[in-house]
Design a protein around this nucleic acid. Structure first.
Lengths: 201, 201
DNA sequence: TAGTTTTATGGAACGCGTATCAATTAATCA
DNA sequence: TGATTAATTGATACGCGTTCCATAAAACTA
């Protein structure tokens, strides 16, 4: 921890400031021009730095795209919350939330790709530091809904995560394998929820 | 149906022959060098034509990648069948198959990306003619397993497709959101199957 | 055979993500 | 001030998917 000569490393706040700046420009690009507009070259031009500089602050495009997760997940969460209005019965609430969840992704396939298909599959051993706080927060909502089904049960997390992953799968399949005659989203999510409400044998 | 002047369209068999040739070279590239080796430039070099020529025969890379689906799905199916040996009880069989299914994708994330993440999400209005025969065949196996749980029930397709989509979601989440503390694959698939075996309320 | 019409091809180009590397700028210490 | 060290930059390069366009090739009609 001794001071050395020469230019000191980046200031902590400067780092955050730069990351925030990049995040804002990336967000603006994504919202205004869509997924494909968020390129390293265009983004660096918007930020006002060289494309190479971005690689000094982020380990790659994937890490930058993750900055956009929070926005999308917030919007999705709000959409789900909206669907819960005037619903009181726990099962009905979960069902409505699930439908809204899957529906959101199907209505916004670009957002789905952003969150769930941006990672470099196959190179996952490399990308080490991923913030999952956003994801965790968005899934909390479902944990509450599941808990309210039967507050006495202790396996809330397993059932929640299973149904969330299941819903994501339903969205993925409906979006990408669009020529296979999938049942309606409503039917499939209903089936997933049947597993949640069932009593363990 | 009158004959017109000028060079006639490609011969039907020639078309199939060329597609087969491309398919074989793509397969060899994928098996030998991996996903990233299957590029339009390398593939065209292997085939012996210009990169542009490929676009005269396929509408894009996605359509070429789909030629590889059958191989992967066959291997996956075989792996699942393997897991069924010496399993007789219907629920146990379904559970074993589900575990093998998800496990296969997690063990081969490149294959997962190939089949489930190759489509151009967002441009799905364009890519019209996708062969889903491969997929359909691979899912048939699960339809049988689900039917055997309770041959009297008529909602086999809904329950099968829901659990298949759910398993794909489990695989997707485990692969791409690898820093979120998902429950074990075994627990999540078990949860999905609970919905299959449950009796409708 | 000459001309016409349609298909098939390949070269060039665009923008992309990413890596390398030398040169420059900035901030600190001696 | 000068030396030292880190951050930033620009140029260059590779391979990628894809599109455009001019040209070659093939099969017909006259």
């Amino acid at each position: 921890m001794t001071k050395t000569a020469g230019r000191p490393p980046r200031n902590e706040t400067d780092i955050l400031e730069f990351r925030k700046k990049v995040s804002q420009h990336a967000m603006a690009l994504y919202r205004d021009k869509g997924f494909e507009a968020v390129s390293m070259r265009r983004l660096s031009k918007a930020v006002g730095c060289a494309p190479t500089t971005l690689y000094a602050h982020f380990q790659g495009k994937t890490e930058i795209l993750m900055l956009l997760w929070a926005d999308v997940l917030d919007e999705m969460t709000q959409h789900v919350q909206e669907s819960l209005k005037r619903k009181t019965e726990p099962t009905e609430r979960l069902k409505a939330a699930a439908l809204a969840f899957v529906g959101y992704w199907i209505d916004h396939p670009d957002h789905f790709r952003l969150v769930f298909m941006s990672n470099d599959v196959g190179r996952s051993d490399v990308d080490s530091f991923i913030e999952t706080g956003d994801v965790q927060g968005s899934f909390q909502m479902f944990a509450d809904l599941v808990r309210n089904l039967n507050p006495k049960r202790s396996d809330v997390k397993v059932r929640t995560d299973a149904v969330v992953a299941g819903m994501i799968g339903v969205a993925l399949c409906s979006i990408t394998i669009c020529n296979y005659p999938w049942p309606t989203v409503s039917k499939m999510t209903g089936q997933l929820i049947a597993g949640i409400t069932a009593t363990p044998q």
